[in-house]
């Protein structure tokens, strides 16, 4: 298991290849990457704040839960904080398992939990000012399926 909470940009290809190389016996690898979206075309930057200490613990606990729930070879979560520009990667999840069903399900589970249970807060900074991104009730509701 690897959890990295970092300001530095990461390269999806490099991280995916390194993860794949670390799990030579896995039959399936799923990766997901979240990217800073500029819906209205007015976003100057996104600022992400987090709770150092709790963030790493919360993510590690999510991965532990995924490992007990599905047959996983390994899992990786990278999540950035600080100031990010539109189009930059925010975070990635990678899961490795003997079979794809477990890898897909665990990746979705981790994504749903990261959305509403990892202590990150996003602020969108635009030409007209800045606003905190509100949590969506649909994101909270997504947890009930697990």
């Amino acid at each position: 298991m690897r959890v990295s909470v970092q300001t530095a940009v990461f390269d999806l290809g490099t991280e995916s290849n390194a993860f794949a190389a670390s799990v030579p016996t896995a039959g399936a690898i799923v990766t997901f990457t979240g990217v800073v979206r500029d819906n209205a075309g007015t976003l100057s930057a996104m600022e992400i704040e987090h709770y150092p200490g709790m963030t790493e613990k919360a993510i590690a606990a999510m991965i532990e839960q995924a490992i007990t729930r599905w047959t996983l070879t390994d899992a990786l979560v990278i999540h950035r904080y600080g100031r990010l520009a539109a189009g930059e990667p925010i975070m990635m999840v990678a899961t490795a398992a003997p079979h794809r069903g477990d890898a897909f399900a665990a990746a979705e589970f981790l994504m749903d939990y990261l959305k509403s249970r990892a202590p990150f807060w996003k602020k969108e900074i635009g030409a007209d000012g800045a606003a905190w991104v509100a949590a969506l009730s649909s994101d909270e509701a997504a947890l009930t399926r697990w």
Binding site: G34, Y51, M54, H79, I90, M91, M111, L114, K115, S116, R117, A118, P119, F120, W121, K122, W132, V133, A134, A135, E140
Partner: peptide, 10 residues
């Protein structure tokens, strides 16, 4: 003790 709004990770 920490107080914060609902989280918006991912």
């Amino acid at each position: 003790v920490a107080f914060f709004p609902p989280m918006t990770g991912g």
